[in-house]
Design a protein around this nucleic acid. Structure first.
Length: 868
RNA sequence: GCCGGAGUGGCGAAAUGGCAGACGCACUAGACUCAAAAUCUGGCGCCAGUGAUGGCAUGAGGGUUCGAGUCCCUCCUCCGGCACCA
């Protein structure tokens, strides 16, 4: 005997194995892989469901706890629907082109494909570790030539339809990144990635004509089951406004005209000046000699400004008078023409008529430059009072009024009078008049601009385009696709606007095999959005090398029934994908007008952070958590816990690998769903994970370490069993996972008190838990002697008869205040309930000396007695 | 400024117009233990009271209703988006 053994007393061997999540999770993940449990079949006789996650960009940092939130939600939903007999398509893939891999390549010389493959492997490991029921046989990767062959093919279809064109446009040029950016990638005049300054610069670029679809992109939003906020953001982004184009003659320039867009043609009699954007083509032509210097200086100044400086929070008006005058077409008034940067070249006609009396911006400008203000609308009294606007002030030209009211001072000798009309009628009347004179027309304008579609990068889809020396643009024949990227060693952008591909001379040079004509391949590549514009279609038929998707399969699976992802894609990805989808629809290549029928945004998961008394956030590594209250390690100052975005700098990032190692994937999944509603922003709290971990351990004990007997469920618990089936079924179906989990906890709290577990209750419980915590559920299912996998077992059904109760506890209120609780038969009518309540001795005592005015009875709930 | 969304215990949160705070975390008392951890059982909105109990409570103020966290109006705060788009 070894007297020195560290463990002389052997612990008693557990009767039955404990909850060993590591072994269980590995076992069942292997089982699902080996058995292809979650492969979707193209069996069109079954009812289908397409459940999609926004696929991730596989970054080097790996998964953070925000990713699995949406993935867990769709996984639970998919598993639930499979158990309810649906043929579920639930795929995953990689949006793998992108700037980080390219920048890493520039720094280290590692080819982006190497980095990408490595990152994908890591992402895939992490995602698989969480036990998601993806059909991995449909995995796609946007950088795979077999995939981007079809991205290029779709681009050619757009080109053939005239929806892709090359234009010399002022672009967002980012010197630090050496590339142009889309409007959507520029935030407050700086690059979304890297936060570098962005300037305006004209360049030849590929542009997609998304504006041609503006009206349909707007109109079709109405039929979508999307969060109202997201739809509203898209509407604002598209920015439809109705108005008119009005043609002005220029004084002293016979035949020259100036066209403006206005949404307020009704105020045309109040126009007191015009404004052109500094870039307007007419500026140099109309500027008089004496103003030439000032105008040139102003143009130079605005051209060198960033977008932020020009359109940012600084609303101070600037401008220069050109010396020219325009003629107001309704009254012949001679009004000065100015230039100012508050008019944008890219919207409308780049020129406006200014009506300072009825437009805030024009008013501010007129005040600054002492331009007359002529009111033509008398403000509605009530509306003016509500907005605290002084009507007399408006009539005196001292205050601006943008609201409604009867028109005045608005008539001419040429058959036009708007006087007395309100704004809407006045608009109609004057547009009709302008159209009849041929000097204006009804017009709709959009804020939405055409989509700048080229990037000066290596790691993107090459355009299947050759630009011949003659200037002719040629398409790479479709049967020669994919056009792959050349292998390169140096990935630096040239810095003058050319992509690194320009350095791959062998690749760039093209000689027509028949005619010997020379050309150059397009050296720009497509933006990252390209691959994600249609990936949901490729999952349907991922290995097809004859078409991007088989029409019959497309018809069966589309549309996506549930699409879950972050709200950061509200206007970018979702608008672009809708655009491509509509183009494909017009080409007869897809069967639905819209790709994503129902959209849900998962809320962001915040980390725990700490702030001091001044509100400054303190990185977690500087926080002393050993005492009862968090303190600053260096200053000793008391700190307060505070939820903040997870970030490297705050050192509050939670890594799923750590959570899974400590508590297992099932706990991780359960916690992410138990935190709160899917759409809500929620702070991560590791203690909460321990809570659901305890729940799983107790579940394990109830099923695996309690004798399971073939006995009926005790009468007092039968109702709870069926109430649980009902609640979990309904809440899972409506994505209210947090309350479904609560109900399972309630079930557990009661049933775990039993000495013997009735088999029916045990099996039902495992089935209900299966979508949420699939690994432990499989193990328990097997433990109950059932045939694996529980993942494909039949979902339990509610027996409503067990939900009935004989008696209710009825609350009796007097004047709305709770008085007594009385047990009453469930079958009792409202009148009988009132009777019984009034007969109660305590109630009678409380009513002594009072007159009963009214009695309200709600069956199953309460009786309220109103007495004086 | 405009458009969305949200304000409920110490914390995450529940609540078809019908007993606010289910469920979980934290805390707390007890059981088990030599002890601790784990586990189990109970308590736990705030104020007053030994107590039964009473009063106050869903951002603030009004309103509708027998009854409001929930519906209506006004306002405040926070989060997200847009921001000179004529």
């Amino acid at each position: 005997m070894d007297f020195f053994s560290k463990n002389p007393i052997q612990p008693e061997k557990p009767r039955i194995m404990d909850y060993d999540f590591t072994a269980i999770e590995a076992k069942w993940q292997k089982y699902w892989d080996d058995h292809q449990t979650f492969q979707a079949t193209d069996d069109t006789t079954k009812k289908k469901l397409y459940v999609l996650d926004m696929f991730p960009y596989p970054s080097g940092a790996g998964l953070h706890v925000g990713h699995p939130e949406g993935y867990t939600a769709t996984d639970i939903y998919s598993r639930f629907k499979r158990m309810n007999g649906f043929n579920v398509l639930h795929p995953m893939g990689w949006d793998a082109f992108g700037l980080p891999a390219e920048q890493f390549a520039i720094e280290t010389g590692t080819h982006p494909s190497v980095t990408t493959a490595k990152n994908i492997a890591n992402f895939k490991r992490q995602i698989k570790m969480l036990g998601f029921s993806y059909d991995w046989s449909r995995e796609i990767n946007t950088t795979d030539p077999k995939y981007f062959r079809w991205t290029q093919w779709i681009f050619l279809q757009l080109y053939k339809k005239g929806l892709a064109y090359i234009d010399e446009v002022p672009v967002n040029w980012c010197p630090a990144l050496g590339t142009v950016l889309a409007n959507e990638e520029v935030i407050d005049g700086r690059s979304e990635r890297g936060n570098h300054p962005v300037i305006r610069r004209p360049m030849k670029q590929w542009v997609l004509k998304i504006t041609a679809y503006a009206e349909r992109l707007l109109a079709d939003l109405d039929g979508l089951d999307w969060p109202e906020g997201i739809k509203e953001m898209q509407r604002n982004w598209i920015g439809r406004s109705e108005g008119a184009e009005v043609v002005f003659q220029l004084d002293g320039h016979p035949g020259k005209t100036l066209t403006v867009f206005t949404t307020r043609p009704d105020t045309l009699f109040g126009a007191t000046y015009m404004v052109l954007c500094p870039e307007h083509e007419l500026v140099d032509e109309i500027t008089t000699l004496e103003h030439a210097e000032e105008v040139a200086a102003y143009k130079k100044r605005t051209a060198s400004m960033s977008d932020l400086e020009r359109t940012g929070l600084n609303n101070e008006k600037t401008g220069a008078f050109t010396g020219a005058y325009a003629i107001d077409p309704v009254n012949g008034a001679r009004i000065p023409v100015w230039i100012s940067d508050y008019v944008l070249a890219s919207y409308g006609t780049g020129a406006i008529m200014a009506v300072p009396a009825h437009d805030d911006r024009d008013f501010a400008f007129a005040q600054k430059f002492n331009i007359p203000v002529i009111p033509v609308i008398r403000p509605d009294e009530a509306a003016a009072a509500k907005d605290k606007v002084d009507v007399e002030g408006v009539l005196a030209g001292k205050v601006c009024w943008i609201g409604d009211g009867p028109l005045m001072n608005s008539a001419n000798d040429d058959g036009l009078s708007l006087n007395g009309l309100h704004v809407n009628e006045a608009k109609k009347r004057i547009i009709d008049w302008l159209e009849s004179k041929g000097i204006g027309k009804r017009t709709v304008n959009y804020k939405l601009r055409d989509w700048l579609f080229s990037r000066q990068r290596y790691w993107g889809e090459p355009f299947p385009i050759i630009i011949m020396d003659s200037g002719e643009i040629r398409m790479v024949p479709e049967d020669e696709l994919p056009l792959t990227l050349p292998d390169m060693k140096d990935f630096k952008p040239s810095g003058n606007g050319e992509s690194p591909l320009a350095n791959a001379t062998d690749w760039v040079d093209y000689v027509d095999p028949k005619t010997g004509e020379h050309g150059r391949r397009e050296t720009n590549t497509m933006p990252q959005w390209a691959g994600s514009c249609w990936y949901y279609l490729r999952y349907i038929d991922p290995h097809n090398d004859k078409a991007f998707v088989d029409p019959a399969k497309e018809k069966y699976w589309m549309p996506v029934d549930l699409y879950v992802g972050g709200a950061e894609h509200a206007v970018l990805h979702l608008l672009y994908a809708r655009f491509w989808h509509k183009v494909l629809y017009d080409l007869g290549l897809v069967s639905t007008k819209e790709p994503f029928q129902k959209l849900v945004n998962q809320g962001m998961i915040l980390g725990t952070s700490y702030k001091d008394a001044r509100g400054a956030l303190v990185p977690t590594n500087l926080v002393d958590l050993t005492g009862p209250e968090p303190k600053h390690k260096e200053t000793g100052e008391k700190l307060v816990e505070f939820p903040a975005k997870m970030s490297k700098s705050l050192r509050n990032v939670v890594n799923p690998d750590d959570v899974v190692r400590e508590y297992g994937a099932d706990s991780m999944r359960l916690y992410e769903m138990f935190m709160g509603p899917l759409e809500a922003v929620k702070p991560w709290n590791t203690r909460g994970v321990e809570g659901v971990f305890r729940f799983l351990k107790r579940s394990w004990r109830m099923i695996m370490q309690t004798p399971v007997v073939d006995e009926p469920v005790p009468a007092n618990l039968r109702r709870l069993l069926h109430a649980t089936i009902k609640k979990v079924t309904e809440d899972t179906d409506t994505l209210n996972f947090n309350t479904a989990i609560s109900q399972m906890m309630i079930f557990l709290n009661d049933f775990s008190k039993l000495e013997k577990m009735p088999r029916e209750a045990a099996e039902t419980y495992v089935l209900l838990l299966a979508p949420y915590a699939p690994h432990i559920a499989e193990e328990m299912w097997e433990g109950l002697g059932k045939q694996a996998p529980v993942s494909l077992a039949q979902w339990p059904s509610v027996d409503e008869s067990h939900l009935q109760v004989e008696e209710h506890e009825i609350l009796v209120q007097i004047c709305g205040k709770p008085k007594v609780r009385i047990m009453m038969p469930a079958s009792l009518s409202a009148d009988d309930m009132k009777q019984k309540a009034l007969e109660n001795s305590e109630v009678a005592a409380a009513l002594a000396g009072k007159t009963v005015v009214k009695v309200i009875a709600v069956p199953g709930r309460l009786v309220n007695i109103v007495a004086k």
